[in-house]
């Protein structure tokens, strides 16, 4: 009753009160839903490059794959995969820590995830330097650098998000309530996506 009369009374200057609270018509919060939808977009971006990959490999290529004389360092990439996969576990540790109110665990988890991710990126760049062919060497080189480079760019974006989450964690921003650590959870979801996508890229490019 009180709210109705309040609404009926005109506000002399409506710039001084904020918007009404939106009704929540879904259990999922906006940020989580947003990142999940964004991951659909990202998956389809990879899909475009995978489509190109299979056209080049299956339709345009006639001999063996990788074509002569290209060779891929499967072992190093496999080692690198293990590093990136382990970073998903440290990310999960960070999230579980803040859910339990453990700020030290949150910081440790975020920083170790960041370091593992950075190590992955460093090893990948090192691989590029020593791999012996460039993106200009045949369509194979183009799509190899296209797919792994696209993924590397996503690792970089993920690392940026982790760095932001870490900075905010060290400045004491997050709390155990679900809405108080979205800034950890959302980058975490993205990081898991980057991880899973690498497994698909790795299996496709190096193993298949």
């Amino acid at each position: 009753m009180e709210s109705a009369s309040l609404a009926a009374g005109a506000h002399p200057d409506d710039h001084h009160h904020g918007p009404p609270e939106a009704h929540e018509s879904s259990k999922i919060d906006r940020q989580t839903l947003g990142i999940l939808l964004f991951i659909i977009t990202e998956t389809m971006l990879f899909g475009a490059f995978f489509a190109s990959y299979f056209f080049l490999r299956v339709v345009a290529n006639e001999g063996p794959w990788p074509p002569e004389p290209f060779e891929l360092p499967v072992l190093i990439a496999g080692f690198n995969t293990a590093i990136l996969v382990s970073s998903s576990f440290t990310m999960h540790w960070a999230l579980e820590s803040i859910r339990a109110g453990n700020h030290r665990g949150l910081k440790m988890g975020l920083v170790s995830t960041f370091l593992l991710g950075a190590t992955f990126l460093f090893i990948q760049l090192n691989e590029y330097v020593h791999i012996g062919f460039s993106a200009r060497d045949d369509a194979f080189g183009s799509i190899f650098y296209g797919l792994t480079g696209l993924h590397g760019a996503h690792v970089f974006i993920g690392l940026t998000l982790l760095a932001i989450a870490s900075v905010r964690a060290f400045r004491g921003h997050y709390g155990p309530a679900a809405k108080d650590h979205l800034g950890v959870e959302v980058p975490g979801i993205y990081w898991h996506f980057v991880d899973v996508m690498w497994i698909i890229v790795f299996v496709t490019v190096y193993i298949l």
Binding site: F55, L56, A60, P67, D138, A139
Partner: peptide, 15 residues
């Protein structure tokens, strides 16, 4: 100068 669509270097134009 990559070769995604350069048929002479293994690229696929129709893709």
């Amino acid at each position: 100068h990559t070769n995604f669509f350069q048929a002479a270097f293994g690229g696929d134009v129709i893709s």
